[in-house]
Design a protein around this nucleic acid. Structure first.
Lengths: 216, 216
DNA sequence: TCTTTTTGTTACCCGTTGGTATACGAGTTA
DNA sequence: TAACTCGTATACCAACGGGTAACAAAAAGA
């Protein structure tokens, strides 16, 4: 582990700086995780930054050293969740298979994300909690996800693997049901997150593909 | 409209009192409606009682003349919504037809309720906003609705009109999708509330009955 | 070793808002 | 007219919580 002076490539003077940056980023993430958990259990307004700070063994001004204000913290929490969905969805959507198969994959990813800290935060964050600029980004990210799903539904309509009356309604129904997971899922419950995700997605897909619920 | 002294039964001295009570109740309702609308647009915490009062051409202490505290106002708002669903669902569920038919009726009522002021309030009220006693009642009412739906799903499993893998999952999926309406529906949008309700319920029923989405 | 930057603290400010004490006027009763 | 009730307003309080100023200490750099 000891790094000898000239041993590795470029033991440049920047190393310490990048190290700093990494630590700073790690601390930001820690703040976000802790904040997300607290927001999720007590609610945004009911969670003071003092509480967040205390949970991190730190004081409030320290938090302000890493974030401009409370709004930024909330927004970054939701962005973690939304980005996770978008990124994983893009990967899934780019794979092979019928539109229905890819849709199932995307919905499953969505479902899984909605059951972790940041996903739950997304589900519970009503947009009037955010400042105007944050709200706009928040909405934009959500629209992106909506567009991704909608696109697959349309594609499925073309290749015949998906059958719905109204694309908007179908997309909305699926997305809302999955958002609900954020409020409903209990890790201490009888089913694991992947099990729940599979089951819910299956129920939804039954409605979207017209193949009915498999009762195998 | 004029009520002559002894004309109707018992022109008792209480008449003025009952009149008072009716007016009082009407004012309570007005407060709730106004509060619900404001809560829905700005959020609970972001809505001060001063704002509610101003919207009613009144001052804050007047509101306290009708309600003990802000919590009671929020809870009563949600109760209006939940009661509406429960009552209408009971009626619908008691009618004839297959379990699937009755389930469709209940879901439709649910959907419609979730698109009016009090229903939206239900959808947006996270239970940590309520005080402990209110929260318990709130949850109890929600459980009642869940039980109603779940019962119909089970019944449908017996008479064969509904096919699902897991009753809890299926019930949850439907309920969450409908809750989502409260956040999503826009009265100024292209579809009316009943249209949206029908479409969403149809999508859900396709998943629950295994009959597929009718694309007629 | 001296200086600068980073990270953190203590102490404080101040706006907002839920909630209340109190008074006042109008209608009702006696 | 005196007394009581009801609905409402004025004026106020106390607490909470977001945000900041100023300072301390440690680490990095020179």
């Amino acid at each position: 582990m000891t790094r000898r002076a000239k041993a590795t490539a470029a033991p440049s003077p920047w190393s310490s700086q990048s190290e700093r940056e990494r630590e700073r980023a790690a601390k930001r993430e820690a703040v976000l995780r802790t904040a997300a958990r607290l927001f999720n259990t007590r609610g945004y307004h009911a969670t003071s930054l003092d509480e967040v700070a205390t949970a991190l063994n730190v004081t409030k001004p320290t938090i302000y050293h890493y974030f401009a204000n409370k709004d930024e913290i909330l927004f970054e929490c939701t962005r973690r969740g939304l980005d996770a969905i978008i990124e994983a969805s893009r990967r899934t959507a780019a794979q092979g298979g019928s539109a229905a198969e890819r849709l199932r994959g995307v919905l499953t990813v969505y479902a899984l994300t909605m059951m972790d800290d940041f996903g739950i935060c997304v589900a519970r964050t009503q947009d009037h909690l955010l400042s105007e600029p944050s709200r706009q980004q928040f909405r934009a990210l959500k629209r992106e996800i909506d567009a991704l799903i909608r696109h697959l539904v349309v594609e499925g309509g073309v290749d015949g693997s998906v059958q719905v009356r109204d694309v908007r309604i179908a997309t909305f129904t699926a997305a809302q049901a999955l958002n609900g997971l954020g409020n409903w899922f209990n890790p201490e419950g009888p089913m694991t997150a992947p099990e729940v995700a599979d089951q819910v997605v299956q129920t939804l897909m039954a409605g979207l593909t017209g193949r009915g619920a498999a009762t195998d």
